[in-house]
Structures are given as C-alpha cells and as structure tokens.
C-alpha cells in the first residue's frame, strides 16, 4: 500500500510538472491536456483503491491552486470521478489499451461535466453546453488518444515500484 501511495504521489508530481511547464509550450489546438486527471484515472482503473481517490482529491486541489481561485472545485470533481471509477471497475474488468482509452475518454467527459457544473454554480455567465462541446469534448478525445502512452508509462512505473504486484 505504501509503495502504491509513493507511486501515485510520484505520478501526481509528474502531472503537476506537465501541467505547469509542458502545457505552456505544447498545446493541441489551444487545448491543455489535464495530465493530473489522466494519471489518476489510469491508476484508479488499474488498482481501484480508495487511497488513490483521496490522492486524486489532493491532485484536484493542486489543480485548483494552479488555475483559478475556488479551492475545492476540481478536488470535488476528481474525487467524485475516481469514486465512480472504483465502483465501475467492480462491474467489469478491462485492461487493454483500447478499453482504458475509451474509459479515460468517458470519465474525462464526466469529470468535465461535474467541474463545469460546479463552476456554473459559483460563476454565473459560463455557457455550460458550449464549453462542454468546444472544450471538454475535444480534451476528452485528446486524453483518450494519449492514454496508451501514459498507460505504458504507468505500467513501467508499476514494474519499478510494485514489482510483486504488477
């Protein structure tokens, strides 16, 4: 459990680095990939531990601090999404690249919808449906396409840290 915690923490820090540095220089169509969310989604799909959901919440709080002023917004959406994944992964097992890509795509949309709904609650004036279509959907597709690379990286991390579990 401790090793998993360290692995998740390490991936979270890499996610933070990618979000604040990489995203400034590399954007696809002006859209920023949510690296923190991707790492947490993939890790939760593979391990389904509540610990990762709580770490995901911390990742969300960091995302809040690095983007706007309402602390807890992404914390809530990340936590809720990861809790849902823990429940969903009990129903079926899928660990192929395509399945995880599709799962990341759908869960990214879910997380985007949750976060945009909360933003809409606190900051009136946001066009929810427009944002879902023009920002959330393309980012979810991008994240789905990027999933195989990140999944490979996570598997490599697992082999390094959780040799007996991977």
């Amino acid at each position: 459990m401790m090793r998993l915690f360290l692995l998740a923490l390490g991936l979270m820090l890499i996610g933070v680095w990618l979000s604040i540095v990489f995203n400034n220089y590399v954007q696809f169509g002006g859209l920023k990939i949510n690296w923190l969310l991707m790492f947490m989604l993939i890790l939760t799909f593979r391990h389904s531990k509540l610990l990762i959901a709580f770490l995901g919440m911390l990742a969300g709080l960091m995302m809040d601090a690095l983007s706007h002023g309402i602390i807890g917004l992404y914390g809530t959406s990340f936590f809720l999404t990861l809790l849902l994944i823990i429940q969903v992964s009990k129903l079926f097992y899928a660990n192929t690249f395509l399945a995880v890509s599709l799962a990341v795509f759908s869960m990214s949309i879910f997380e985007g919808w949750i976060s945009l709904s909360i933003i809409d609650m606190f900051e009136p004036g946001l066009e929810l449906s427009t944002n879902l279509l023009t920002s959330n959907l393309p980012v979810a597709i991008l994240q789905g396409l990027m999933t195989p690379i990140i999944l490979q990286f996570v598997i490599w991390g697992e082999k390094l840290f959780l040799r007996d579990l991977a």
């Binding site: 604040i20 949510n34 995302m63 983007s67």
Partner: peptide, 11 residues
C-alpha cells in the same frame, strides 16, 4: 511565466 492549468479559465 505560465498560465492556468485548466481550459476553463483565462488566467
């Protein structure tokens, strides 16, 4: 030196 980490805010 940087910008918002998300796509929903122009910071």
């Amino acid at each position: 030196i940087g910008e918002s980490a998300d796509n929903n805010h122009d910071i």
